[in-house]
Nucleic acid binder design. Structure first.
Lengths: 344, 344
DNA sequence: CGAAAGGAAAGAATCGTTTAGGTTCTTTCC
DNA sequence: GGAAAGAACCTAAACGATTCTTTCCTTTCG
């Protein structure tokens, strides 16, 4: 039915092994024979069977992508399409394919990862998130599967190849920007506390406050999923403090969008009444109202480098552990303004 | 190194074929033997090799996902995470895996699809978009690969299994809703004209106008990518007509977000000055300002049904061609209001 | 001129499963 | 008691490549 390497061999009057070598463009085959074999391949419409090749090779040329549980709201974050675009680019260049994890809950995903790894469906894996005490990461380490994580591993970061931004510096700079604008009462609105990225950004925020000798107030720290009622409540609480903040560092553009709405509902104007700086600089931040000042973390590059390094690691098992830091830049738009003392 | 079926066989004192049958839970093996074999598997930590199984089986249990070119802005649309969530669910339930197309340009993606299909990397394919004169779809048909498209095929739709909404009716209803609110000057803001979904929604819009005996005006139709300068220009033109529209049917939530901004810049209020109804009802429509009245097209279900039916088709080649219509509902929020005659 | 060297291709084992077709042994029934 | 039937496994040939080893020719050179 399907045309195999043997058919080609017969047609070209050579042995199957010769055909195989022609495919691999081995120097051990003369140009004349190569031409002959290639013609036979054309004539028969031959296409190599990847599965068979994988079996013989013990390499699938597939890398697995582990997304956070899709039950999670995080899944809707435009971060993912963009990081996948970067991964996709690197992977395509090197003729690898991409396999997605499936499963809604964490347990399902874990099962899925075990399956793809043990079943030898993939040569390596990219973890698209980093959270504290992740079972999946522990598993990958234990099994010695080539993998890289996007974000900073919670523990033993020096033993795991990862691609990340310098999130603490980024947050620090973002906060300092607000301080330069004269703000002194700056609050931090974070997302899921288990994500390392949230922790790092909070840390950067604290550092900026400290080095500017501003007081760090617990009641200025809010962690919520901002697309829900609960989040709006928390937000309202924050703003009805005796000394409400005049500026906000928001951990993520999507969240900032939610904040923007809550503020509008409360009749507060951005940036007139409140300045906001957020992170990621996704498309959304351009088309929000007002357009958001946001830290561009170069999502595409995060994905691209992760994939590129994973493939290196796969193809050369002696590749050293690496930590790759992708640069960030603060993109100034219209959600921040100088602090203006209120009319008294 | 890795433990194979033979090792298990040896350990359990049976033939490899018996082990294989135990894995498949064949009734031809006695319970006693099954127990024995399963113990051996546990003891050795055996995991079946999917690649080898695929080769013997001529089935990979993988389905390919073809996304639009990631160079495209459409890629950023929250539609994709959600549809993938649906697909992922169906696929996970049936123990299939998901492989993503890679490549930025259309040509690259085409190449990629040919590779995954010819290389027998996938058992079937889901096309995540439908546009006029698509090479990839033509190829899949020619090669007789099991596939389903999400959206309505441009031509010969009755020969291709597809999962779609009744977009013309949806658009018609959305438009009628505006008409019921008293609007008579209703414009249509569409996206990429090559996408069938855009064409269908435009058609529904026209039908609504016609049956309400409202005039259909060419200058009320705009097709643009609304996140760019060009789009804003077109928008401004539209609103500076002698008789500007009082309501907008926007083909997509993301686009509606862009429109919302342009309007705000122009000092127009929604819904006071202009009503807007859009499509897809993604998360964004809830957290926009004002929250958008949007047609919920049940994206998750689109993906879920597509995957479910593709798998049916793969497992039973005689499965008939199907057209599956996913229901939609208009979700009313705060972007529409009654038409109010302007102060004269 | 004949042996050694070396290039080019063939042969055959292998990768880890599945599965058609046998084999063995017990059971059944006339 | 012996043939037939059937249960429970086993043997071995695929599946479609890759790759180690061997063989067959030419060349080359003393």
């Amino acid at each position: 039915m399907t045309v195999t390497i043997k058919d080609v061999a017969k047609r070209a009057n050579v042995a199957p092994s010769t055909v195989s070598r022609v495919i691999a463009d081995s120097p051990r085959i003369s140009e004349k024979t190569k031409k002959k074999v290639r013609e036979a391949m054309k004539e028969l419409g031959y296409h190599p069977n990847f599965i068979a090749r994988s079996l013989a090779n013990k390499s699938t040329q597939v890398i697995g992508l582990i997304m956070p549980s899709s039950a999670d709201k995080a899944f809707q974050n435009p971060f993912f399409p963009e990081v996948i675009r970067g991964i996709s680019k690197a992977v395509h260049d090197r003729q690898y394919a991409l396999q997605l994890s499936t499963g809604e809950t964490e347990a399902e995903i874990y099962e899925g990862v075990v399956h793809m790894v043990q079943g030898k469906r993939v040569d390596g894996v990219i973890l698209l998130y980093s959270r504290a005490n992740d079972k999946i990461m522990a598993y990958l380490q234990k099994e010695d599967v080539p993998f890289v994580v996007i974000g900073k591993p919670h523990k033993k970061a020096e033993q795991i190849t990862h691609v990340d931004n310098d999130n603490v510096r980024a947050a620090r700079e973002a906060t300092e920007y607000l301080i330069e604008l004269g703000h002194e009462r700056i609050a931090f609105v974070g997302g899921n506390v288990n994500l390392i990225v949230t922790m790092d950004r909070l840390l950067g925020y604290e550092k900026a406050l400290k080095s500017a000798s501003l007081s760090y107030r617990k009641d200025y720290i809010v962690h919520e999923e901002f697309l829900k009622e609960g989040g709006q409540e928390a937000m309202k609480e924050l703003l009805s403090l005796k000394e409400p903040p005049t500026a906000l560092v928001v951990a993520d553009d999507l969240m900032a969008l939610g904040v923007l709405n809550t503020l509008a509902e409360m009749g507060l104007r951005v940036p007139a009444d409140l300045s906001i700086v957020s992170f990621n600089n996704v498309l959304l931040s351009e088309i929000s109202r007002p357009p958001l000042t946001s830290v561009d973390i170069n999502i595409f590059q995060l994905g691209f480098e992760a994939a590129r390094n994973l493939i290196q690691q796969i193809e050369n098992p002696n590749e050293p552990i690496k930590r790759i830091i992708i640069p960030h830049t603060l993109v100034k738009r219209f959600s921040c303004d100088y602090y203006k003392a209120p009319f008294e």
